[in-house]
Amino acid sequence: MTHEHFTMVFNIAYTEADRKEDLETMTDASINLRNLGWIRQNPYSNKPNLLLDDEDDAIVEELKYYKKNGGCSMVDNTTIGSQRNVEKVKEYSEASGVNIIAGTGYYVSQSHPPEMNTMSTEELTQIMVNEINNGVGNTGIKCGVIGEIGCSWPLHANEKKVLQASAAAQTVTSCPVIIHPGRDQAAPAEIIRILQEAGGDISRTVMSHLDRTFFSNENLLEFAKLGSYCEYDLFGIETSHYQFTDIDMPSDAQRIAYIKTLIDEGYEDKVVIAHDVHTKHRLMKYGGHGYSHILLNVIPKMLKRGISQDAIDKITIHNPRNWLVFNE
């Protein structure tokens, strides 16, 4: 699973519910069976739902379940600005036996530290290189990916600076990169161009969230030609309403159909998948699909829809491994 979260705090995503009468009763309510249906439709309008950093026992239990069902590794995309906690994630890994790869870099501009405005690309590059080669702070815990690097639409000047630093850090370390693109179908190609101009290796870069970015096979395949990994990482979200924009969020069945198109057109070596769990309601503890959903439910559906076991092995084993392996 190339795109998950374990300690993320997503306060910047809070969005008022469409029904104003729900604000008083639902905004601060704890998750329970009576309001779970509402939270599934309005996940970013319930403030407790945005705090994933206090679910230690539930997450360890889920990771053990993931391992029991054949899971081995996960990438934690929680970066600076979204409550990254590499020490806690190391504890999760040791308690569960699941290998977890930590990320370096910065999330979207709203979450950047105040000093970002005055930091140079070179300074940002050095921070990432140091976290990859030496570890985060004094923890000794080294990062194994650059990202998720957060981008908005339109792209903020500081986000462009972080992209350029990410490409530079990748050049120094060969570390893989993973991107959170802005919510517009033009965003991924713009990001690829910026990374290329800064010397980044697009073949070692994952473009996340294609689920909510491309809505036709034509646009998807046009992007795939650029050479990055194509990631469908919102598996388990079956709600058509997407609070951030007016798009129709695809279902898991539609995600599988897009992936089959990529495979049929020769891109099976460039597909990776995940759930991007980043809110409480998606944990099994709260009636969610959990981190094992792809293993238990999606892969059997993929087989039924004509995707071969060899292709599935590429998507869930070989492609992530090829992307992640690098030399310091």
Results as ranks from 00 to 15, higher is better:
residue 303 L to R: 15
residue 270 K to W: 01
residue 268 E to D: 13
residue 285 K to L: 08
residue 300 P to W: 03
residue 183 R to Q: 15
residue 252 D to Y: 00
residue 226 L to V: 00
residue 206 V to E: 00
residue 235 F to R: 11
residue 224 A to R: 02
residue 257 A to C: 12
residue 312 I to M: 12
residue 276 D to Q: 08
residue 191 I to S: 08
residue 219 N to E: 14
residue 200 G to H: 03
residue 314 K to W: 00
residue 300 P to A: 04
residue 185 Q to D: 09
residue 313 D to Y: 12
residue 227 G to Q: 01
residue 294 I to K: 00
residue 287 G to A: 03
residue 236 G to L: 06
residue 179 I to W: 01
residue 223 F to E: 05
residue 262 L to H: 03
residue 233 D to T: 13
residue 276 D to W: 02
residue 252 D to K: 04
residue 253 A to H: 09
residue 223 F to P: 09
residue 240 S to A: 15
residue 186 A to P: 08
residue 285 K to G: 11
residue 251 S to H: 11
residue 270 K to R: 15
residue 305 R to Y: 13
residue 216 S to N: 10
residue 241 H to T: 11
residue 231 E to Q: 11
residue 177 V to T: 05
residue 178 I to H: 06
residue 260 K to W: 02
residue 209 H to M: 10
residue 244 F to W: 11
residue 243 Q to I: 10
residue 179 I to C: 01
residue 187 A to Q: 06
residue 271 V to A: 00
residue 194 I to C: 11
residue 291 Y to E: 04
residue 181 P to E: 06
residue 187 A to V: 02
residue 297 N to A: 10
residue 273 I to T: 08
residue 296 L to W: 02
residue 201 D to K: 10
residue 182 G to I: 00
residue 182 G to A: 09
residue 281 H to R: 04
residue 192 I to F: 03
residue 313 D to K: 14
residue 179 I to D: 04
residue 265 E to A: 12
residue 287 G to W: 02
residue 182 G to P: 05
residue 213 T to F: 07
residue 288 G to D: 01
residue 218 E to K: 12
residue 189 A to T: 13
residue 271 V to M: 07
residue 301 K to L: 14
residue 260 K to R: 15
residue 302 M to C: 13
residue 225 K to T: 05
residue 183 R to L: 14
residue 210 L to P: 01
residue 188 P to G: 08
residue 313 D to S: 13
residue 314 K to F: 03
residue 230 C to H: 02
residue 263 I to K: 13
residue 286 Y to K: 01
residue 258 Y to V: 00
residue 212 R to N: 11
residue 281 H to W: 03
residue 178 I to R: 00
residue 236 G to T: 07
residue 247 I to D: 06
residue 211 D to G: 12
residue 308 S to D: 12
residue 277 V to Q: 04
residue 270 K to A: 13
residue 300 P to T: 01
residue 242 Y to S: 13
residue 273 I to Y: 00
residue 316 T to C: 15
residue 309 Q to M: 15
residue 289 H to L: 11
residue 255 R to H: 08
residue 290 G to A: 10
residue 253 A to Y: 09
residue 189 A to D: 12
residue 284 M to P: 05
residue 256 I to L: 12
residue 247 I to N: 04
residue 298 V to H: 03
residue 189 A to F: 00
residue 262 L to C: 07
residue 217 N to W: 04
residue 274 A to E: 03
residue 207 M to A: 06
residue 305 R to V: 14
residue 262 L to P: 10
residue 198 A to N: 10
